[in-house]
Amino acid sequence: MEDSEKPKAPRSLVEIIRDVYQVENVVYYSNDLSNNQVTGFTYSPEWAKHYETSKLQNVDPVVRCAQRQFHPIDWKKLDWSSKKSRELFREASNSGVGNQGLTVPIRGPLGQFAVLTINDTTSDEKWQSFIKDYTQDMLVISHYLHKTLHEKPSLTVEENQKELSPRERDVLSLLAIGNNRAQIADALGISEHTVRVYLDTARTKLGAINTTQAVVLALQSGSIRI
């Protein structure tokens, strides 16, 4: 996934997530400001087609909630009481969609919208435990996907330097040459907590999945030097 030369196919990315987390389905959907849609899903093509042609998004409580709100959504906690949404749930189950779902909405700075959904068939208890363990992973992965699929890679050193602030570059550089967080905090005269948060914001901006990849990307693009 680190090789930027490879074509970025949404379908193959969601399949990787499905296999790593051993769930039945993974869906990514986004709509940017120019109304360009990117989707990747592991549902059956028949179900996807039916969903689209019957405009089921209009009765899907998950879609309604994810479009407006920003917390990770546990499907079971939504209002499925209307006849249309119960019908949707029943049809979905018959088409291989699991009974449990977690949908992570992504809100961009200009109001861009995307979601990552994880879907499985399991008991409420097991699902609660899955959510507890993996919601944070899904938040990070959803943003990684979003960056990977949407944003043109910044090609010039200037562009990358504009993205990262001098403080974020300092923290990444010190990490790249082998300092730990305490040493970085000491060197820059800031708290370890602040160092951890700067690493997190730098990771988000670079579209990296973890801190190590953030350092690699920053080195490759020339935003930091060692």
């Binding site: 992504i106 990070v140 943003h143 602030s165 001098p166 700067y198």
Partner: peptide, 11 residues
């Protein structure tokens, strides 16, 4: 914030 945009799915 020293010019750092605080931007993260975890914050």
């Amino acid at each position: 914030t020293d010019g750092v945009r605080i931007e993260s799915p975890l914050i």
